[in-house]
Design a protein around this nucleic acid. Structure first.
Lengths: 327, 327
DNA sequence: CTGAAAGCGCTAACAA
DNA sequence: TTGTTAGCGCTTTCAG
């Protein structure tokens, strides 16, 4: 469809080598010749064929990015930020949205790998030896984010355990006597990657398991709203700590629908600090994910040269807790 | 890095042609030979190089998608849906987020075009003769969505004008005497694409301009919250009709911060029906964008064969109005 | 049924 | 300063 270097060479009466020298500012070409070629390129509207360039050079300047689900604002922000970071360095993005489906994730990974992306940033729904092997076979630099897969892959995430412990301790100090942790554990298959939730739950247990005055409880099903409805409220001051703002908002809706009030009847806490919280009352206490920082780190891990023998770096960022009026 | 067809040919002691016949189920190969090749491919973990394939075949099975801003849930849903549609047909997505910036949009378009996408779905922030020309030079099939650029490009969007007229008429019938239209008109440069907002404003005017009992007003600045604060409330029943839910939510926040109540003191209406509305009170009246349908239409317009002389189809879908308790 | 060879558009090494 | 050529990995046509 478009015009090619070969056409341009014919038009300008020069060879392909000269065309290349003109475009890539290589030495060994008369200024006048370069001018002539550039003019012709403009006149005939030459556009380089990146596919051919990539094939020849073996690099694409593309980065694959795999995320769970754009409709959760958290991921939308993540993708936005990573596009900014990557574009600033003249890279482009290949996006795949897994929708928390292992097959979709693999499909996406396989496609971007076949398209020779220079590296992959992966927020995975999978893990396990078999998946490790699958990733290895892709033969691409990979950085895992947020959900760790195994120590053999570079990783940048949160200090989930620590922040959850600290958060829980603070909640206990506020006088809550019964704490409920809400995370979607049961929902997934055995090979599902629950790294973040497990870490947070561990931190939660460290804080309240060590305290004999506090009941603790895990709600991990898809039917947590159901369980919540059959829950006895009022006897002991109760707080619900959620693994994501979305859960907290769903619960808030349900409570309000039953005429209950937060934080009067129940304390409630989210995680992620999505934009939508701005419009919800009471203002939800939550944890701010350092998205930008995570994107920056992930990209530099991807492009940093590491020697083969080196251990894969495992980085934990510190999120910030913000206290609203919900707990 | 990986193994290639050539390697495979050597390993199996056959020619490249035979390898190709095996993989692409072409006739003219002994079943036994095919078996042997497939086994070797599995054993050595052969992965086709899509870049090379694309270069040779001249198609990529990739679709470019340009949107404004993922952090507005509306676009997130759109991208999600379009990925589903496209993946179902074995296509993949090249995403570019313009962030409402004309340069970013062009950068993205240029890149995806250079990567030989088979077609582009474009939700543009630009328009005008110069941009038309830019698009033409990309030399790709393009379908514009939501924001029309010109009649020369296939288009699928909403009947913005009609729905806004009907909506406004209904609001007037509810007894509102003063109506305010909020759209971000002033924010943009001259070549900015304001198609949807203009259409909606036109519909708004058709409804209230024709009615001598109704005041009407346009707020188009970025400082509409400021203007709103200096607004005299109470004299005549007032309704604010917004071009997007986000505006409506911002206004709602501001009103509530000042102790005003919706719909008691003011009627309020959004547009898009984003998921976040679920968590906001009062429930906002809004317009449901037929996202899935728009994606389906866009994709089929892109892949339908049209003869060159044919007019570019211009399709308008009917959105649905949903009434909450905000007006 | 299989092999050989050309070519997609671009780059890079080597000649002239 | 410029031209020639081989080749990235795959597909496709033409011979055998």
């Amino acid at each position: 469809l478009g015009i090619t270097t070969k056409d341009l060479a014919r038009i300008c009466g020069v060879s392909l080598g000269t065309i290349d020298r003109a475009f890539r500012n290589r030495p060994g070409i008369k200024a006048e010749t370069r001018e002539r070629i550039m003019a012709a390129a403009r006149a005939y509207d030459y556009k380089p064929n990146l596919i051919a360039k990539n094939l020849r050079q073996g690099r694409t300047f593309e980065i694959g990015l795999v995320v769970h689900d754009l409709e959760n604002e958290f991921f939308a922000q993540l993708v936005n930020e990573i596009q900014e970071i990557v574009w600033a360095k003249q890279y482009y993005l290949q996006l795949a949205v897994s929708r928390r489906d292992a097959d979709r994730e693999r499909t996406g990974l396989e496609h971007m790998s076949g398209r020779n992306v220079d590296g992959i940033i992966l927020f995975s729904v999978c893990r396990g030896a078999e998946f490790d092997e699958f990733l290895r076979k892709l033969n691409r630099p990979i950085v895992t984010i947020a959900n760790k897969i195994s120590g053999s892959w570079p990783f940048v995430g949160l200090s989930d355990r620590r922040v959850m412990r600290e958060l829980t301790e603070t909640v206990i100090a506020k006088g809550y006597e019964r704490l409920v942790f809400v995370g979607p554990l049961r929902r997934f298959a055995a090979s599902a990657n629950l790294y973040q939730i497990e870490e947070r739950y561990a931190g939660f247990l460290e804080a309240c398991g060590g305290n004999p005055l506090v009941d603790h409880l895990l709600w991990a099903g898809g039917d947590y709203l159901e369980e919540l409805r059959s829950f006895e409220i009022g006897k002991r001051r109760t707080a619900i700590l959620c693994c994501s703002d979305i859960f907290a908002l769903e619960i808030l809706n349900d409570l309000q629908g039953r005429g209950l009030s937060v934080p009067r009847d129940l304390g409630l806490m989210g995680f992620d600090s999505i934009n939508a919280l701005k419009y919800v009352k009471p203002s939800l206490s939550t944890v701010v994910y350092p998205i930008r920082q995570m994107g920056d780190m992930a990209f530099s891990l991807l492009t940093d040269e590491r020697r083969d023998g080196d251990d894969a770096p495992q980085i934990e960022l510190e999120p910030k807790i913000t206290w609203g009026n919900s707990i």
